[in-house]
């Protein structure tokens, strides 16, 4: 399979066409904006955190297929997880797309494994990571928009 086919896998394109949890979360208690100034991708991530658990998560925004699919998969993977577990998933995801040779626990990543093809496209890693930086900002309660720069 070519790098390109590995990047634009069907599941990724399906998340792009029909992103999950793509809405405003009215009862969110954490929220952050992410922005990639290079390409203009923008995302708003909404979280509902109760005790130490992310009980609900949703997003809105505009962006390329990679950033949209990544955000969509993020909402699926962290929903219902503890904050520590969400952090673990983020670490695993980050390793997968930035260190193609490293060992990664794919079971913990679920659909996110479909984004592994991004590692062959250094110019697109920022697209894939935007939603995750935004998640960090939302959990840390930072008010300013995070950027990929």
């Amino acid at each position: 399979m070519s790098n390109l086919n590995e990047l634009y896998q069907e599941i990724l394109l399906e998340h792009n066409n029909k992103p999950r949890n793509f809405r405003k979360l009215e009862d969110a208690n954490r929220q952050a904006d992410g922005y990639n100034p290079l390409c203009g991708d923008r995302i708003t991530l909404y979280l509902k955190v109760e005790e130490d658990v992310i009980t609900d998560v949703a997003f809105q925004g505009v962006g390329c297929a990679i950033s949209r699919a990544s955000a969509s998969m993020l909402t699926q993977s962290v929903k219902g997880q503890t904050l520590d577990k969400a952090e673990e998933i983020f670490d695993g995801f980050h390793t997968m797309i930035t260190e193609p040779e490293a060992e990664v626990d794919y079971d913990a990543l679920g659909d996110l494994e479909m984004l592994s093809g991004v590692s062959a496209f250094p110019t697109r890693i920022k697209c894939a990571i935007l939603a995750w930086h935004t998640l960090h900002a939302a959990l840390a309660g930072q008010g300013d928009a995070v950027t990929t720069e």
């Binding site: 070519s2 390109l4 390409c39 203009g40 962006g63 390329c64 297929a65 697109r124 697209c127």
Partner: peptide
Amino acid sequence: NAHPHDVGTILDAEGIAVRTGH
């Protein structure tokens, strides 16, 4: 249906250099 960044990546795979963005 395709965002400019995705178009740019696919064109690059074909050896075609275009600019994408604002």
